[in-house]
Simulated scan of single mutants.
Amino acid sequence: MSEPRDPSLAEDAGELAVEGALRPGSLAEFIGQHKVRRQLQLLLDAARIQQRPADHILLSGPPGLGKTTLAMIVAHESERPLRLSSGPAIQHAGDLAALLSSLLPGEVLFIDEIHRMTRSAEEMLYLAMEDFRIDIMVGKGAGATSIPLDLAPFTLVGATTRSGLLPNPLRDRFGFTAHLEYYETAELEQVVERSASVLDVTVPPVARAEIARRSRGTPRIANRLLRRVRDYVVVHGGDAGSATEADVSAALDLYDVDAIGLDRLDRAVLDALIRRFRGGPVGLNTLAVTVGEEAETIESVVEPYLVRIGLMGRTPRGRIATPEAYAHLRVPRADEALRIDDL
Rank of each mutant, 00 (worst) to 15 (best):
L188N: 03
F132A: 11
M124Y: 03
M117T: 12
A178W: 03
P169W: 08
P167H: 04
M117K: 05
L166K: 00
E122S: 06
M124R: 00
I147H: 11
A152M: 04
T145R: 15
I134W: 00
T145Q: 15
D150I: 00
P167C: 05
L170A: 07
F174Q: 08
D172S: 12
L156T: 12
T177D: 08
F174W: 04
G143E: 14
E184T: 07
G175T: 06
G141K: 02
M129T: 10
E187I: 00
E122K: 03
H179V: 06
E181H: 10
E123H: 11
T185G: 01
Y182N: 03
Y126D: 00
V138T: 11
E187N: 03
E123N: 08
E181C: 07
A144F: 14
D135V: 12
P167F: 06
F132G: 02
T118Y: 08
E187K: 07
M117R: 05
D135G: 07
R119C: 07
L166D: 01
L170S: 07
T145Y: 09
G164C: 00
R173M: 13
T145V: 15
R171N: 06
F132H: 15
P148D: 12
A128W: 15
E123L: 01
T160V: 05
A152F: 01
I134M: 02
R173E: 13
S146V: 13
D172M: 08
F132L: 00
A128E: 12
Y183Q: 00
G158D: 04
T155L: 08
L149H: 15
T177C: 01
E123Y: 00
M137K: 11
L165M: 13
L156P: 02
F174H: 10
T177P: 00
L151K: 02
I147E: 06
E123W: 01
T161N: 05
L165K: 06
D135E: 14
L170H: 08
L156S: 10
P169V: 10
V157I: 14
R173C: 14
G158E: 03
M117V: 09
L180K: 01
F174I: 05
D150P: 01
S163M: 04
I136Q: 05
S163P: 01
I136M: 08
N168P: 03
P148H: 09
T145K: 15
A128T: 12
R162I: 01
G143S: 15
A178R: 01
D135K: 01
V138D: 10
D135Q: 11
F132N: 15
P148K: 09
A186N: 09
I134R: 00
T160N: 03
R133M: 14
F132Y: 15
E123D: 14
H179S: 07
E181A: 09
A178T: 01
P148W: 09
S163C: 02
G158W: 02
R171M: 11
R173A: 13
R116N: 10
A128I: 12
M129K: 08
L149A: 14
S163D: 03
H179N: 08
I147F: 13
G158A: 06
L127C: 00
L166Y: 01
